[in-house]
Design a protein around this nucleic acid. Structure first.
Lengths: 205, 205
DNA sequence: TGATGATTGTGTAAAAATTAACAATATACC
DNA sequence: GGTATATTGTTAATTTTTACACAATCATCA
């Protein structure tokens, strides 16, 4: 299937989380306007997103929560699963590890990398941590295709290059340095400072 | 001045960081296409952003780096500065604290909040940490107007309400729960899981 | 000093994203 | 069983964002 717009993908991911909560609360049907309200979106947008992914609801009853979770998972999760590495196990890397662990069956954090001797060759929260010099080996061995970069800015470029060299397909860059990647690698960047500055700007007079 | 588009504000924040690096490397002028290239943007977009904020460069010489930093700061930084609190000093809260500390003269992290007895009434990285029951007092005392929420999802709503009750103007929500806020409060939400799922989606076949 | 060429600034066009509008339809109620 | 009504699905309109195109301008160098 044709790739969906990035914005729609983001929203589907968000909807899914909410839907999982709904299900656990025993709610089995949901209206577009309910879901919209929970996400500061409009009902039309929710319906359009759902339409774009090829799912449908029942008129006057809304959407079957369980079916919709499955439909979103069908889109977002690759069937064979994907393996993830976190590069840089400082506070941010650790936060991501905790947030994520066990939440998504199809996204497995397989390896951590850090230069801290206290961490190298230890198991951290169930996941082994290695020295970055082993990056190439481990990426191949565990078929890792996604790297999450949470290293200090001065190391970002070097490790990005190593990840690409090792054949990674996607990078999520949390460092403050914008990175360049070749076309066959998907790059997503997020910058906390920017978010904070944006809040500061819009919450000021 | 009229508020700029959110996207432009984000880019200005990013440009500023790059420009500060340029300056520290002794680069005193920069072309729109150079800045664009560093940020995966087009030169036109950079020029338009600069135009929107009312700054100008010199034809054939580009933009004066120092002047442009000042121009962006004029836009993004409120002159009297803004005071920030981080609510939840787990790994993520700590990461933000470290990332941010001392980086922006006009955004002062004034207080931390956490329920961990090990942290309450201690100074963490130079900033005092309090029990959330003191939130209202401290927000007023230090004139805090921005709150960064990095608490477990089940506590998000309650602490959001307390922040708003205390008169906060902007919230940056890093929890996985979408929040509702009244119109006079600016809300920015970021969800790591969504970013990772987006990378997984677009880096898959 | 005059021609050249690179770069900015910006009106206009294009593309992308969002919203409005409304037909189709299934449910609930009488 | 018939009617009213709430909700979906989708086309069309609108708005927002980005890119194109090019005139204006100023350093540079012959």
């Amino acid at each position: 299937m044709q790739k969906l717009p990035g914005k729609t993908v983001e929203r589907l991911s968000e909807y899914r989380r909410t839907l999982i909560n709904c299900l656990s609360e025993g709610k089995s049907f949901i209206y577009s306007h309910e879901l919209a309200h929970m996400h500061h979106k409009t009902a039309v947008q929710v319906r359009r997103d759902i339409m774009l992914m090829g799912f449908s609801g029942l008129q006057r009853k809304g959407y079957d929560v369980k079916e919709m979770i499955d439909a979103i998972s069908e889109i977002l999760d690759s069937p064979e699963g994907q393996n993830v590495a976190i590069i840089g196990i400082g506070h941010l890397g650790t936060a991501i590890l905790h947030y994520f662990k066990g939440k998504r069956a199809k996204l497995n954090i397989q390896a951590l990398f850090d230069t801290d001797p206290q961490k190298i060759d230890r198991i951290i929260d169930g996941i082994p941590c290695y020295h970055p010099e082993k990056l190439d080996d481990i990426v191949h061995k565990y078929r890792i295709n996604i790297g999450i970069l949470t290293v200090p800015p001065e190391k970002a470029k070097e490790l990005k290059d190593q990840l690409i060299q090792a054949g990674i397909r996607g990078i999520l860059n949390f460092t403050t340095v914008p990175l360049k990647v070749p076309d066959h690698v998907y790059l997503e960047e997020y910058d906390m400072i920017t978010s904070i500055e944006k809040v500061a700007y819009f919450s000021g007079k």
